[in-house]
Amino acid sequence: MRSSREILKNPEMLTLLGFIVICLFFSIATSEFLTFTNISNILRQVSINGILAVGMTFVILTGGIDLSVGSVMAFTGTIMAGLMINNGLPPYIGILLGILLGAAVGYINGMFVAYAKIPAIIVTLAMMEIARGLALLYTGGYPLSGMPSSFTFIGRGYLFGVIPMPVIIMALVFFLAYIILNHLPLGRYIYALGGNEEAVRLSGIKVKRIKALVFMVSGVTASISGLIITSRLASGQPNAGVGFELDAIAAVVLGGTAISGGRGHIFGTFLGALLLGVLSNGLNLVGVSPYVQRVLKGAIIIGAIYYSSTRKKD
């Protein structure tokens, strides 16, 4: 049996306990919380932030940050929509090109961070504006609607009539991330890079290439989230994803990944995303103002980072 002190030092266990407590509270506070419809809705909402948070986990593990994910999500989503609506391409071609675009944008971020040695916060802040501006230019500032039903099924459909398709996609993304981070050499290099970059460089590992790759992963996950939200809304929204980078960062740090890099687990990221989704849903059900929710979200991030820093000192 683990002592209470050991549990309190485990960020994943703390997040899991917080998730259980929040679920118990809202199940008592409102009868709508534990309904099948609401749980399905929570999982569908969590899937977008969860997938974004996977890419953010890769970046933060190396000691970086990616503020462009919300804008990249909108940019790639509008491009997918435009390719299908304006150019008549089949959905699978539009999806593939959109994901490749997300990978390219992420790789550009990584190139500037790794090779030009510009701080990640500056590079991705600039890309946040560039990608959002390109999305607005491409659409003229208006949504692109008229999606084929085969595309909207991705965001609205169910597997076996029960499990939302976005949840299936999220599960696959988390599974792949788990394999990479825990069973492949690249995962070990990512953790090592966040722990001691100079030692990794001296060992002969190509640090710059790894940095570029993790930002590319973040771009890919942002484009997958863009695919889901575009499919769910049945339109390409140039203003989609505003503030989503904050949600992704919150899920990662709440899940126990150290903001300085080198320590964390993809399962913790999933718990963090799930906790935030349940908290947001429950607060909406009990009628808490969205403005208050933003304050709470900011406080949660500060608390999680403070806990992470004190744990590092121990």
Rank of each mutant, 00 (worst) to 15 (best):
R2M: 11
S3Q: 02
S4H: 04
R5W: 11
R5A: 13
N10L: 04
M13N: 08
T15Y: 00
G18Y: 00
I20V: 15
V21W: 01
I22P: 01
F26G: 05
I28M: 13
I28Q: 14
T30S: 12
L34D: 10
T35R: 13
F36L: 14
F36A: 12
N38H: 09
L43T: 09
R44D: 04
Q45P: 02
Q45T: 04
V46W: 04
I48V: 12
I48N: 05
G50K: 14
G50D: 15
G50A: 14
L52K: 13
M56S: 11
M56H: 08
I60W: 07
L61T: 07
L61R: 11
G63R: 07
S68E: 05
M73V: 02
G77V: 00
A81G: 02
L83Q: 04
N87F: 15
P90K: 06
I93K: 01
I95S: 01
G102P: 07
G102N: 01
A104N: 00
G106M: 04
I108R: 01
M111F: 11
A114I: 00
A116C: 13
I118G: 01
M128Q: 15
M128H: 09
M128A: 15
A131V: 02
L137N: 14
T139E: 11
G141E: 14
Y142V: 12
P143I: 07
L144V: 12
S145N: 11
G146N: 14
M147I: 08
P148Q: 05
S149E: 15
F153A: 04
G155Q: 05
R156C: 03
G157N: 03
G157Y: 05
Y158Q: 08
V162L: 15
V162W: 11
P166F: 01
V167M: 08
V167G: 05
A171D: 03
V173W: 03
F174V: 09
L176F: 10
Y178P: 08
I179E: 03
I179K: 02
N182L: 03
N182M: 09
H183I: 06
G187M: 06
R188A: 05
A192H: 05
A192W: 03
L193N: 12
L193C: 09
G195I: 02
G195Y: 08
G195H: 04
V200T: 08
S203Y: 02
R209Q: 13
R209A: 14
K211E: 12
A212S: 14
F215R: 12
V217F: 13
V220A: 01
A222S: 14
G226C: 00
L227W: 00
I228K: 03
T230V: 01
S231C: 02
S231M: 00
G236Y: 05
G243L: 04
G243S: 08
F244I: 02
E245N: 10
D247V: 02
A248Y: 00
A248H: 02
A251M: 03
V253S: 12
L254H: 10
T257L: 06
I259M: 15
S260D: 13
G264R: 06
H265D: 13
F267A: 09
G268F: 04
L271E: 10
L271C: 13
G272Y: 03
L274R: 11
L275F: 15
L276S: 10
S280H: 07
S280T: 12
L285Q: 14
V286A: 10
G287A: 05
Y291I: 03
Q293N: 07
Q293H: 07
R294S: 12
G298F: 10
I300L: 12
Y307Q: 12
T310Q: 15
T310K: 15
K312P: 00
K312E: 11
D314V: 15
